[in-house]
């Protein structure tokens, strides 16, 4: 093996291995994350969240406080590669869409968990925001931070449970 073939193997072989590893580990990770998201969303269904700005007049609310939830999610090596290809031909980058979806749904879950932990059961004026985070020493790494925030209240318009 000449020095050139070795260099060629290294230059193309290493990224190829990373892409394959990224594809399998990344998609497994993502599926697992989505399953966890769905499960917790189901658990938190009792905590209502609305994007309304005005106080609803028909609800008896108390104890307002700001609640936030956030998550920084990174793409895998394969997705970066796929998005790079997509950048040539243009169009929808599905792999990045799911990245944003994961981050946002995770942030929303955490916001609801914070609200629940503080004894609230409704969150109003929910805002969602996303920021790109530079991670990794080479800077080429794509990760996004999603934040969900709103004002949590205790809603007591429901009749007390009768035992």
């Amino acid at each position: 093996m000449t020095e050139q073939t070795a260099a060629l193997l290294f230059n193309f072989g290493v990224p190829a291995v990373l892409i394959v590893a990224g594809f399998f580990a990344g998609s497994w990770n993502e599926r697992r994350h989505f399953r966890r998201i769905v499960k917790r969303e189901e658990e938190l269904r009792a905590i209502l969240a609305f994007a309304i700005r005005r106080m609803p007049s028909d609800l008896a609310l108390s104890a307002p406080h700001l609640v936030t939830g956030s998550a920084v999610i990174s793409v895998d090596y394969f997705k970066r590669f796929a998005a790079g290809l997509r950048g040539i031909v243009g169009g929808r980058i599905g792999s990045y869409e799911s990245l944003f979806e994961r981050a946002r749904r995770e942030a929303m879950i955490r916001m609801k968990q914070t609200a629940q932990g503080a004894g609230s059961n409704i969150v109003l004026n929910v805002k969602l925001d996303t920021t790109r985070i530079y991670a990794g020493s080479r800077g080429g790494i794509v990760s996004v931070e999603a934040i969900a925030y709103g004002t949590a209240y205790l809603r007591h318009d429901e009749p007390a449970e009768i035992h």
Partner: peptide, 23 residues
């Protein structure tokens, strides 16, 4: 923490250290 984040970046997923930092 960034070294850990770089590794995580191969397989994707949450960068917990960054989430905590931002929080």
């Amino acid at each position: 923490r960034d070294i850990g984040a770089s590794l995580k970046n191969l397989i994707g997923g949450e960068l917990r250290a960054y989430t905590d930092l931002m929080n």
